[in-house]
Nucleic acid binder design. Structure first.
Lengths: 231, 231
DNA sequence: AACCAAGTTTGCGCTTTCACAAAGTTCGTA
DNA sequence: TACGAACTTTGTGAAAGCGCAAACTTGGTT
């Protein structure tokens, strides 16, 4: 656990209000786990026995409806808590969490949640802020689904991935994990066919490049334009 | 405030774990307000200076997108806390709250939130449970919008209103506040025209009755059927 | 080197649902 | 009780996007 401390100290807003020795206490109680790409970390409706912190990688949060259609509700970037059912007064996970790429996660038994919340000033507050951000995002997604056309929704989804999970390269901003047409369709309530047509067009227009399941955004401002109704 | 105590004691899950004298303390700090039908209680993005408990009536939670389209994300039944931005680590309201019918609300300054959460065992827990329920509903709405057709979404919306805000009458279950086609379209990401066609059909089929902005569900099980994809 | 699985592209017809339009109804209020 | 505002109904045409189908590309594996 020694190697982790340094990198943790800086990046983790969840723990940023903790003293160094408190942080050590917390880390000492955690278990570290590597999750390979595509594997589940937990499943919807499962007993919420643990909560997690994403150290490295990207987590995809998804649900299945009764007909078996998959819906992706959000992606989690490194540094965030997840699986925090307790913060929602729940004892099961409301959705499944999948490793969008290989992930390194810290794991605590859920029984420690109340401990942490009680003992460490600011821990709960930060957790609820995280919840608040997710609620905002869900709210936005509802608005988009309710009022926007597929093209706008896909443009927004790509932009969101870029902003939250992008890394700068010499050929534009690259989304940090593999993304297929199918996945974008599950994020936007569309079909992989329609998404394919849109991405092909945007590639022709040099708005983005996509190959090998990786997307580079070349011209974010034109993508922003496509986001608007009248475009 | 005396008259309230009795009715409150029973119904309010938010305070159900409080002792009688604690409850009195809490009530003594509240202000009571009547809000006429259609009037706002607070607006999206406003400074979250207060939080609320709905004693009587029904509150509609809505947002406007950049193009000015209204989206209704949920309705709140009597007995629930709302405007609890602090529970989401926010200092502005994430949406607007409107009186769907005349409402009676208790109001506390937001500064008391942390007080209550700290002092009254179970208050925070109940609040987070409420948040959790709303998150679940939002999740469901995202799934519906992403995967279901308009007819299914409208059927579900009517059923949800019936279950959460219905009162039994001799002519079926009546939704407890006025609901127009427009409102249903804003709940389902549809248009008032399409909703009108659906409701007319359902009325012909004796699944429901609707007049004077009031809807009675006559045959919930047939509505449930329409909820399914293959119907 | 060959093959398979996974992902992508593209065409075509069809359904759903919207947009626009216009008339009818009901409600509240002056 | 008359008027206007709000709400509803219904028709018609158009388009967005889906479903189905088939071919193609790419990457990984044996």
């Amino acid at each position: 656990m020694n190697k982790l401390d340094k990198s943790l100290l800086n990046s983790l807003s969840s723990f940023r209000r903790l003293e160094d020795d408190q942080l050590r206490e917390v880390l000492d109680l955690a278990r570290l786990r590597r999750v390979p790409t595509g594997k589940p970390i937990f499943e919807e409706a499962e007993d919420a026995k643990q909560f997690f912190l994403l150290l490295d990688g990207h987590v995809r949060v998804e649900r299945l409806n009764a007909e078996g259609d998959k819906v992706i509700s959000l992606h989690i970037p490194p540094g965030q808590l997840f699986g925090i059912a307790r913060a929602l007064g729940r004892d099961t996970y409301p959705a499944s969490a999948m490793a969008a790429v290989e992930c390194i996660v810290l794991i605590w038994p859920m029984s420690l949640w109340d401990d942490f919340a009680g003992r460490y000033e600011g821990f709960a507050a930060e957790a609820y802020k995280t919840v608040g951000q997710r609620v905002s995002e869900m709210n936005n997604q509802i608005m988009e689904l309710a009022t926007q056309h597929v093209e706008q929704r896909v443009a927004r989804a790509v932009l969101r991935l870029m902003k939250q999970h992008g890394r700068n390269t010499d050929s534009g901003v690259q989304i940090a994990f593999p993304v297929t047409r199918k996945i974008i369709s599950e994020m936007t309530g569309s079909t992989l066919h329609t998404v394919s047509r849109l991405l092909s067009r945007w590639e022709r227009q040099r708005i983005l490049r996509s190959a090998h399941r990786h997307i580079h955004v070349l011209d974010a401002s034109r993508l922003e334009e496509l986001t608007r109704q009248d475009a």
